[in-house]
Amino acid sequence: MFEAKLTEGLILKKIVESIKDIVTDVNIDISPSGISLQAMDSSHVALVSLNLSMDGFEHYRADTNMVLGVSIANLAKVMKLADNNDQITLQADQEATHLKIIFENPKTERTTEFNLNLITIDSEHLAIPETEYSSVVTINSGEFSKICKELFSLSETVQITTNTDYVQFSVEGEVGSGQVRLGHNDSEKKEDQTILEVSESVQQQFAIRYLNMFNKASTLSSFTRLCLHQEQPLVVEFKIDNLGVLKYFLAPKISD
C-alpha cells in the first residue's frame, strides 16, 4: 500500500511539466522514505533524476518498495485536471494496475479523482557515481533561463567556461559570436546573487535546446545550480524547498 498527500499540489504539477518534454515513459520508484525516478531521453543525451523525501508530504505511507510505470504524457494530461490550489494525493495498492490521483480543494470543496493505468517499462537504469564537481555555479533560475533562451536564438551550442572570477556562456554561429559573463556576486539582494565555487576551471560545450527544456523547472526553485567537471556530464539542479531535488544530467558536445 502506498499513499502520499502533498498539500501544495502545484509542485507536483510543475514537476510533471518540467520533465514531460524530455522523457516519455518513466518508472517511479516508491520506497518507505520517499519517491524517486530516473529516466533518460530517447537519444540518451539527457537524464532526469528526481528525489522527493517523505518528510515533505503532509501524509506519507509506503509499506514496501514499489515500481509504478507511468506514461508522463498521460500523467501530464491528468495533472491538467488539478487546480493550482489543489492538494494532491497519490495512491496505489500492492501489485497495482493503476495509480489513483486525487485532487482536493478544501476551499471550494471540489474533488477530482483519476485512475491512471500503469504500464510495464523496461528501462535502463544508470549508475551515477558520486562526483566531486570542480565548478559549482549557483545562479538565479530566471536569469539562467533567459540567458539560455536568448542565446539559443543565436546558436545551437553554448560553451560554458568557469574560473574563480566568472562563469561565461559563449556562442558562435552564423550571426556572429559573443558571450554573457557573470562574476561572483554575493550582494545583499539574494535573488541577484551568483555564487561561484571553482576549484578547477572547466570549459565544455552543450546543446542549448536541452538546457531550455531543463529550465522549465525554474518555477520550482529561485536558484539553479550548475555542477561541472571537465570529464563529466553537466548537472543542472533545482532544489525544491522542504521536499527534495530535481536534477538533469546533460552529456557534453565534443569537438570532432
Binding site: M40, V45, L47, E124, H125, L126, A251, K253, D256
Partner: peptide
C-alpha cells in the same frame, strides 16, 4: 561537433 551520449560516462546499474 559531436554530441556525446550519457552512456559513455555512466554505466548501467
Amino acid at each position: 561537433m559531436q554530441q556525446k551520449a550519457l552512456t559513455s560516462f555512466f554505466s548501467s546499474a
